[in-house]
């Protein structure tokens, strides 16, 4: 999904223009409309795309714009707002709960995505060959992925629980913990990271495996003939050729982890704060906080956007298959 999106993004400024001769561009808007709607096939294409586009614009883009507009107002549900400038953002940054949610989200994202990447890469490298029982492995990959996050969080909460929880029992017996896991914020955050690693590492492995499988075998053959050892082959062939798949998988997982909500909400019984739980609480739990929560939502949107831009521009995520 990410590839095509990036591909579309890149070809958007130059792609369509390239196809058309310069003359039709000079004809301006009227020329474009005539060209696009004069042809029945093209007209049909617009009819087919517009419904999906309309829904997306109305239910995603419009609310974001509305949200940005509201973030400069003191607005409560069912009440007229008043313009307050950046006051909401100032209050947001000053709010310890927001900062806690921000730190937790960043720690959770960085640690869980890193762990998922290294373990996922190891798994992908290990299973990148023909062997008996592939079906079983594929099932083991897909089952955690298909679980609703809240349900896996609920399941793990039962296992971390101090009365009947197996994990808590084992950790306690081994003397790793001195108190029930779910009564401590830090331990709960670690537990949440472990659950996320359990749930999404297989999926990361799946994406990386797909990337590995398109690397032609003769490249390795040639390197082996030239005397490259296993480490060299990995660093000089596998990693560079896998880079596009790695970046896609990392961006996808990073943005996913960054919006963490279900896991924290259920595992910690609403105690552990993330950016998303912070916004949620302002919308549903204490609506006096609505304007600040809305500002935080705008913050989440633009920071997620910045992460995507960072991957595409700075890390050079391959944005086009055409080259």
């Amino acid at each position: 999904m990410t590839q095509a999106q990036a591909r579309g993004r890149q070809s958007q400024p130059e792609g369509p223009r390239r196809e058309l001769p310069k003359k039709s561009r000079r004809e301006g808007l009227r020329g474009i409309i005539k060209e696009e709607f004069g042809n029945p096939e093209r007209r049909a294409a617009y009819y087919l795309v517009v419904p999906a586009l309309l829904v997306i614009v109305l239910v995603a883009f419009y609310p974001i714009a509305y949200s940005v507009y509201l973030s400069f107002q003191r607005v409560l549900p069912n009440q007229p707002g008043e313009f307050v400038g950046v006051q909401n953002y100032v209050s947001m940054v000053a709010d310890p709960s927001f900062r806690e949610g921000f730190y937790n989200t960043v720690i959770f994202t960085v640690v869980s995505v890193s762990l998922e990447f290294f373990i996922g890469l190891a798994i992908a490298l290990a299973i990148n060959r023909a062997f008996r029982g592939r079906g079983l492995v594929r099932a083991a990959i897909l089952v955690p992925w298909a679980f609703p996050t809240v349900i896996s969080a609920a399941m793990w909460r039962l296992m971390f629980q101090d009365q009947v929880g197996i994990v808590n029992y084992v950790a306690n017996t081994l003397g790793i913990i001195s108190q029930p896991i779910l009564t401590d914020q830090t331990l709960t955050l670690i537990a949440a990271i472990l659950v996320d690693v359990w749930k999404t590492t297989p999926f990361m492995a799946l994406l990386l495996l797909a990337g590995l499988q398109v690397i032609p075998g003769d490249v390795y053959e040639a390197a082996r003939v030239d005397g490259a050892n296993a480490v060299q082959r990995f660093l000089l062939i596998t990693l560079p050729l896998l880079k596009p798949a790695i970046l896609v998988a990392l961006l996808f997982r990073t943005l996913d982890a960054y919006r963490v909500y279900d896991l924290f909400w259920v595992m910690s019984d609403r105690q552990l704060e993330s950016l998303s739980t912070y916004v949620y609480k302002a919308v549903r739990v204490s609506q006096l906080n609505f304007p600040i929560g809305n500002a935080a939502a705008v913050f989440v949107f633009f920071s997620a956007f910045a992460i995507a831009i960072f991957f595409i521009k700075v890390l050079g995520m391959k944005t086009s298959t055409e080259g």
Binding site: M1, T2, A4, Q5, R7, G8, R9, S11, Q12, G15, P16, L20, I32, E35, E36, E41, R42, A44, A45, Y46, L48, V49, A52, L53, I56, V57, V59, A60, F61, P63, I64, Y66, S67, L70, L255, Y258, R259, Y261, L275, S276, V279, Y280, A282, V283, F290, G293, N294, A297, V298, V300, F301, A304, F305, A308
Partner: peptide, 28 residues
């Protein structure tokens, strides 16, 4: 089908995949 804004449409639609859903719960 070939039409002028095909890649722009695809970009707009797929951009949603990067959208944090929590960003729109307040306005919605």
């Amino acid at each position: 089908l070939r039409f002028r804004f095909s890649s722009l449409f695809l970009t707009l639609i797929l951009a949603i995949a990067f959208f944090p859903p929590v960003a729109i719960i307040a306005p919605l």
